[in-house]
Nucleic acid binder design. Structure first.
Lengths: 345, 345
DNA sequence: ACACTCTATTGAAGCGCTTCACAAGCTAGC
DNA sequence: GCTAGCTTGTGAAGCGCTTCAATAGAGTGT
């Protein structure tokens, strides 16, 4: 631990003395090594190691007026979509020598605010924000009077900041299109379009696909939540019908929902998945691939969202006053599994 | 955003001028309000609001030499046990006016080191560390020459730091005991005791319970991993046996494993859960309660671990030089569900 | 009116760094 | 041998806060 006597924490000045150079030279070794001869660099590094010197970032930030850390306030780290964002953002940050610190708002608006304030006080270079969303149209997220460079993730475009979003409408369209191409014509959408904005957008995409093909019908099956239990309820409701009244394809608005539906079907031998009813989920959760019959789903590009957002933030930081906010919409990707297409070989 | 003209970011000095008081008074309002008359406080707060002043923490940390933020380096945020720790730690920190910032090492030893170094440079008050573990006996985690106050989570006791651990041996014991009390006498442990330290400890606990009751037998069924697929393989292996050769209770070393086992059983009508074979899991993952038959499991006290660790850290910070490292071992909790005890009412 | 307490407020001295104008030491050209 | 032009190295002036000794005010008791 701490070195010999009763020892203060060593400062740059101590390093300079130990190495027999000036204060500014130590700083140069750390920040602009190309300005210092190899010999002196070696001396300084040795002194740093001998003393166990750890530079003080608070002082650095204060003196330089810039930080190399980025804050990421995440709405829900227990959701793998958002956790993936942090991975993508971190990877991208590391490539450019930036550090990423995380804060979990846990779907609490006040904590989201508090963490943004904290990062503002820390004078981080910028923040990434995956905001708490409501089903309200535009929750305008950028909060503070303080000029914090912010990029919004999983958000629709807004004037106040750069944004990265995922095309939920397209996701719904792709799911429906997939089932239609498989020859299904009596589709059911499980979930409540006004449960949350994204669900509504997905439903809109489904409708678009249906409208393109007159022979295909769509039925809406609302649910309270999007948990496995809700899915089992949907499954039971379908099983209670005459076979001729049942859909031949179900588009669930979330994987857990799809998981419950498939589970309900598998527990009887009345309905085979996918032969009688094909099922799709959404999100590419673990639930989708742990299901007895692995579930076709739409993968949200979490890592990519994070990486793109981080790049946009770096652009914004570099461009300064001339920066104009931009908006990126990423596409979800259809992952076809056995709940729609039986294992072949 | 930024106020009127081309405006610098306002400093305390600006607030002082605006409010017509001295610099030190503004600082007092922020840090020791009881020393300032209500009238002056009001003036200062108004000035702060008018100017949109956001205090600079870098300067604060530098001047005061202490920070109010705690860093938490987590080995794997995608594991709900660890995420729960962050929740407990955060709650406890908030109670005492501390801020918690997260870093995900993602099971990468080098990133763990890098984040610890970062927090050391930031001069945080202390760090919580849920370290990357190997199956090695004692991975001694405290790294740096720098004197960073650290509490280790999910760790066995060590001399270098305070630790909070969970009693895995007890968890295994409780699971086995539970099955034995239900009258099961041919038990199977699914998982490889040397897959990871905790699994070995759980297995040891199971053995202890078995040894207490001579009439009960134990069989070990190793698996490569602890995923659902491994569980399904275990389930199939059991189904392939003569009914008389099958265990009547299976202790899985992880929920996902138990989930796969139950899934395999449910897909046939040969084995009823729990009537023919009772199954327990471990961790209280979502997988446990999303299973067709909800799975009895051992809940790891994640939130409590985090809260306890944060309290220990605060003690360490308060006590200073006189501090002696302490070690807490928490107990897992048996959650009885339908995979061992059928729904009654 | 005076001495004595308190309490509320002041402002200058750092905290540990980055920066940058400047100095010093070289090399090369003539 | 002298100067111009480099490359290296230097150190003092802040960055925006906290702290604390010093001061100004407001009471109190006599």
């Amino acid at each position: 631990m701490a070195s010999s006597p009763d020892s203060r924490v060593p400062r740059m000045e101590d390093v300079a003395r130990e190495a027999g150079v000036a204060l500014g030279t130590v700083s140069n070794v750390l920040n602009r090594p190309q300005k210092v001869s190899p010999k002196v660099q070696a001396k300084v590094h040795k002194a740093i190691a001998d003393l166990g010197f750890v530079p003080n970032r608070a002082a650095r930030v204060l003196a330089a007026g810039t930080s190399s850390t980025i804050g990421f306030v995440v709405v829900d780290l227990s959701n793998s979509f958002f956790l993936d964002m942090t991975r993508g953002a971190e990877r991208e940050a590391a490539l450019h020598g930036l550090n990423l610190l995380l804060a979990n708002s846990d779907v609490d608006f006040n904590r989201e605010r508090a963490y943004l304030e904290l990062f503002a006080q820390e004078r981080v270079a910028g923040v990434l924000l995956a905001p708490v969303t409501t089903s309200q149209p535009v929750p305008t997220a950028i909060p503070h009077a303080f000029p914090l460079h912010t990029v919004l993730l999983n958000s629709d475009a807004t004037e106040d900041a750069c944004t990265v979003g995922v095309d939920n409408e397209l996701g719904g369209y792709l799911a429906a299109r997939h089932l239609i191409e498989l020859g299904r014509s009596r589709l059911m959408f499980a979930g409540s379009p006004d449960f949350a904005r994204p669900v509504g957008q997905r439903f809109a995409g489904v409708k678009r696909a249906i409208d393109e093909v007159p022979t295909v019908g769509l039925e809406l099956m609302p649910t309270d939540e999007v948990q496995a239990e809700d899915g089992r309820a949907v499954g039971r409701a379908v099983l209670d019908r005459q076979p001729s009244e049942r859909p031949d394809g179900i588009i669930a608005s979330a994987d857990l929902l799809a998981f419950g539906i498939v589970q309900a079907f598998l527990s009887t031998s009345e309905v085979r998945v996918p032969q009688d009813i094909a099922v799709t989920g959404y999100d590419n959760n673990r639930a989708a691939w742990d299901s007895g019959v692995p579930i076709t789903t739409l993968a949200q590009p979490g890592e990519e969202s994070g990486a793109v957002a981080m790049r946009m933030l770096m652009d914004e930081l570099r461009e300064g006053r001339s920066h104009v906010h931009t908006h990126t919409v990423l596409s979800p990707k259809l992952l076809v599994r056995e709940s729609t297409v039986p294992r072949s070989s």
